[in-house]
């Protein structure tokens, strides 16, 4: 992965993933249904499940900090509804 990162960095390209989940105090009925189904299937050590969204983003930028800032801007402006959702940005390569 380090090699790939260097390669992408040279090519002015970086790849990120963003995970968006509902905030803890917001009811997640879909997660609840998935959880109940798994419990009904016999998986009983399950504590909780929250369902979310996953984005994979390629960006033409070689500076990691600049790229991260851009991704953060995308999240705040469109990808995430900050009233009800939290997000995590991860670098893939």
């Amino acid at each position: 992965m380090a090699k790939q990162f260097q390669l992408n960095s040279k090519k002015n390209k970086l790849k990120f993933s963003v995970t968006v989940t509902l905030k803890e105090d917001v009811l997640d009925p879909q997660g609840k249904v998935v959880q109940n189904t798994l419990v009904n299937m016999g998986i009983n050590n399950l504590k909780s499940i929250r369902q979310g969204k996953h984005f994979e983003i390629d960006i033409n930028e070689k500076e990691l900090t600049v790229a991260k800032k851009k991704i953060d801007e995308m999240c705040r402006k469109l990808l995430v509804n900050l009233i009800i959702e939290d997000y995590k940005i991860n670098i893939i390569k």
Binding site: L27, P29, Q30, N81, I84
Partner: peptide, 16 residues
């Protein structure tokens, strides 16, 4: 609500 002209948001119906 998405434009911010009204505050708050509309979540999925409780009964899905």
């Amino acid at each position: 609500t998405e434009t911010g002209l009204l505050r708050g948001t509309l979540l999925r119906n409780k009964n899905l």
